[in-house]
Simulated scan of single mutants.
Amino acid sequence: MSDELRKLNAFFSEAKVWPEELRALRAILLDCGLTEEFKWRGPCYTFDGSNVAVIWGFKENAALGFFKGVLLRDPEGLLVAPGDNSRAVRMFRFTGLDQIEAIETTIRDYVREAIELEKAGAKVDPPKDDIVYPEELLAALEDDPELQEAFEALTPGRRRGYALHFAQPKQSATRRSRIERSRDRILAGKGLQER
């Protein structure tokens, strides 16, 4: 058994929240012809190597997220953004197995549409970055050319994630501390949540 398969099996067998819902979503996604991989500490579903969907077990709900969900037709308005700053991902939220069973056909339709978007090479074209970088980040980038070069080499989503993370604290000292703690990760080209 591969290490990846062990991690996937452990994820589902050891799930503390929404275990039945997560297994039901897994079965649907695998039945739709997606490949299951272990990324970002959880199951990710791909088509021809491209990320299509992901499932999560949150405290409040189980969720099925689509990486390019903003491009999906959603005539019934079932998809929601995972957060205020989400630009592309949209997801279903479930608080019971019966909810998944009630819209299984709809879920399959959305998965098929997401696969077709991948086949067509569809891209999400987010608006230009509207994040204002905190002063502490601008100062750190100006004072550290190596950090600036590495930060600018990050994908727009990774830069955005860091900028939002750095801007959250009210105190300047905390913002500077977050930047310092993230320096090595930025130099390694990693996003905020990547290991």
Rank of each mutant, 00 (worst) to 15 (best):
S50M: 14
A102T: 06
E118G: 04
E180F: 04
K123T: 13
Y110S: 11
Q99L: 05
E142T: 11
D48M: 13
E180G: 04
A102E: 06
P82L: 07
F94Q: 03
L187C: 09
P134D: 00
E21K: 01
E104F: 11
A140K: 02
E142Y: 06
G49R: 14
Y45M: 06
S13N: 15
G69T: 10
R41Y: 14
F67A: 14
L117I: 05
D48A: 14
T46F: 13
D98P: 02
G42T: 01
V17P: 01
R6I: 14
V17G: 09
S13H: 15
G191S: 01
Y133H: 10
I55C: 05
R195E: 15
D48L: 12
I179F: 00
Y162F: 06
L79M: 12
L137I: 08
E20H: 09
F58E: 13
E135D: 11
E116T: 15
L22H: 01
N61D: 07
A139S: 12
E60M: 05
V54M: 15
K119V: 09
E37S: 14
E14R: 12
F58S: 07
G189H: 04
V17C: 07
S50N: 15
D84E: 14
L22A: 09
K39I: 07
A122P: 04
G65D: 10
R87E: 15
L137E: 06
R41K: 15
G69V: 13
A167P: 00
I103T: 12
L29K: 12
W56N: 07
F92M: 04
D144G: 03
K128D: 15
I131M: 10
L117P: 06
A62F: 05
L141D: 00
P75I: 15
Q99N: 06
A114N: 08
E180Q: 08
T105A: 15
K39T: 05
E152F: 07
P127E: 14
R176Q: 08
F166A: 10
G77K: 09
L5W: 10
